[in-house]
Write a protein that binds this DNA or RNA. Sequence first.
DNA 1: GTGTGTGAAGTGGTTCACAGCG
DNA 2: CGCTGTGAACCACTTCACACAC
Lengths: 207, 207
Amino acid sequence: MRIAEPTVERLVQYGRLLESLVAKGKKVVSSKEIGDMLSFKASQVRKDLSYFGEIGKRGVGYPVEQLSRHIGQILASPRQWSIGIIGVGKLGEALLGYLSFHNEKFRIEALFDADCGKTGKEIQGIPCFHSDEMAVRIREKAIDVVILTVPAYAAQTVADSVLKVGTVKGILNFAPFALTVPEDVFLISMDISVELEKLLFFLKHKE
Amino acid sequence: MRIAEPTVERLVQYGRLLESLVAKGKKVVSSKEIGDMLSFKASQVRKDLSYFGEIGKRGVGYPVEQLSRHIGQILASPRQWSIGIIGVGKLGEALLGYLSFHNEKFRIEALFDADCGKTGKEIQGIPCFHSDEMAVRIREKAIDVVILTVPAYAAQTVADSVLKVGTVKGILNFAPFALTVPEDVFLISMDISVELEKLLFFLKHKE
DNA sequence: GTGTGTGAAGTGGTTCACAGCG
DNA sequence: CGCTGTGAACCACTTCACACAC
């Protein structure tokens, strides 16, 4: 069955919330409670959860632990994904710190930078290679996903050469540039300046 | 006229693209060219641009410089917004570096952190205050927007106390937590772990 | 002929409303 | 009686298709 992007986004949040409810020892939760905590409509929550079978008990709610396990399975990976971060500026390092905790779903396998001052050593335990070695190392480490934290002017060139290797199937792009990628590559762009401009635009229109 | 969020998002990108086309000296551009460069359909581009009056010339395309100015006006701010960053970890500092360039639309006015090792001095030229002073300083500097880069467990508490001051009308949240805010506050959440999980989910479903 | 502007049609996602089950 | 599960109605955004201007 096909499952829509907004649904997956919410599913990840349900998963996170349910884990915290398990930790708190809550036994049962209703769609309304979940909705209130995550700012979704109760009907939305029910629809989302019903896509994956009937877990709730009518007149009662959803058993917290069982639902948490269930969502965990839906989001589970078939194997541990291999991730590379390209661009070890402040943002790249921040993301590395943020993602380097132990996680069964993925592992940061390599860092890349064009600055020789950063290459050749390990940063937070992850080897940092020079961009010249990118193709070789990406193939060697079978990188599945790259996180792009390079300047805007370099983003498209870097993306193109990364994708030429053929192992990379997804890109998380932080560069403020609208990348063009083949349609079989999954691209998510997180553009801070676009989001900020959006926010300022709506602020203006409310004043 | 009410203008939808996805439209604003594209508008910001048109603006950025048009600026680069002006710099390149391009005189005229068609909706198809814009669409190809940003991965939108040409019809989408035309519809978006037509919301704000007829700028294009039929049979020719859009005059680059004029369109760029026009979009600049649509996105222009009535005044310079005042922004605070709460949480001066790696991510907070990365964002500061990223946004501290001169910009007429906004200015980073204050940083806040709970760690006394960071407070009391200036970081990249911006004063860093202790969280205890938050309410006072936010009011004093008339902060319009806060960027939240605090740990998940602190996010809701911090957001609540920030909003109590009354000057803040928008939040850009980077904490991996689903914030609850009054509906007159504009909230944009950029949750890296959610985006990464989404990407991994769709990767799994393609394999 | 070429490319815009736009009403109409289409698509995808959300919300409603209620049947159905515990 | 309460809360889930779900088809139907609704809504928002996108795409089409074509008249119109250059």
